[in-house]
Design a binder for these strands. Structure first.
Lengths: 180, 180
DNA sequence: TATTGTTATACTCTATAACTATA
DNA sequence: TATAGTTATAGAGTATAACAATA
């Protein structure tokens, strides 16, 4: 990373007179962002927001949110997946999974069975309706991924995902190394 | 909730039996993620979470959240910036800015003046305390950016930011092109 | 009429902690 | 004791909409 220096900014000091007379707002188009230009966190937030909104808009009134697509896809592709597995695979606490599963069950998209060998475990299986629903959402997800592809350029797509995964993995392992 | 019975074949095909006897959860390490492997949105969410958490942990008990750093930096670097400008520059609604500004004002980090030429406009200026606070946070932000750099590799850093910015810009313009 | 900022409210997504039932 | 899932609750971050003051 390059070393950057930033100019000091003028501030209010003791004894300064707060003159109301000639003060104006700076020009909006030439605001100084300083270190914020490199501040990945802000861009990650906005990138997530815009990507989320793109997918949500494509789903329309599908009743299922982008977050539910992840869960339903895991169930369709891994029949008899447990709720803890769903939570781990989607990087959510198990308590965050319960509500989604109950809703899908009420809608008839999934059924939940009890494991015979360990009756604590609830196994989720997609119904035909759930499979159809997932397929419809996946078709829209493909369009969404295509729009992401267009937005960043196909030649950067694979690298971008790999970089995101590296960021997550390495930052998480660094965090747990210093004790969370 | 007790054992449930389901109509024949919810989820599977006619004639399938929902056997409770031999069903087991799939192997956690070999779950099939299907399209989710390419599903950028999920990685953006997790990347934002881990990056946010890394910065927050570095800030410690600084009382200022990562989100406040953006706002305070804009004020320090652009004295007399208006609240609408802060909102636009930080991609937040003006109503989300008010609370942060009032808190900073109460803490003595900023003062707010009225524009002489347009008395609707509130101009924010950092105090000496605010400038010191921002400088302390910026020092920690640099450490944070270094850890991001380490996580993704310095040779990919510039490209990664550029890709994030392109994703935001192109996806937002595509959204407004089709009418939000 | 339009814009700046404030306020009250609510929404989304998620986590924490206490609980049960099983192991 | 430990784990799977449920529930109630809360928190963070943000937006929407109605409003007052000003343009």
């Amino acid at each position: 990373m390059d070393k950057k220096t930033y100019d000091a900014a003028p501030g209010i000091r003791d004894g300064d007179v707060l003159s109301y007379g000639s003060v104006q707002a700076p020009d909006t188009d030439t605001l100084d962002h300083g270190i914020l230009h490199e501040f990945i966190g802000m861009y990650l937030r906005r990138a997530h927001e815009t990507a989320y909104e793109d997918f949500r808009a494509r789903l329309g009134d599908d009743a299922l949110h982008p977050g539910y697509f992840t869960i339903l896809t895991l169930i369709v592709r891994n029949p008899h997946i447990s709720q803890t597995q769903i939570g781990t695979a989607s990087a959510r606490d198990k308590s965050s999974v319960t509500k989604a599963l109950r809703w899908m069950e009420d809608e008839g998209m999934i059924v939940r069975l009890r494991s015979a060998s360990d009756r604590r475990i609830h196994l989720s299986v997609a119904t035909e309706k759930g499979i159809r629903q997932q397929a419809m959402m996946e078709a829209k997800a493909i369009g969404h991924l295509q729009s992401l592809n267009d937005a960043i350029g196909s030649e950067r797509y694979a690298t971008f995902i790999a970089t995101l995964k590296d960021l997550i993995r390495n930052l998480e392992s660094a965090a747990s190394a210093r004790g969370d």
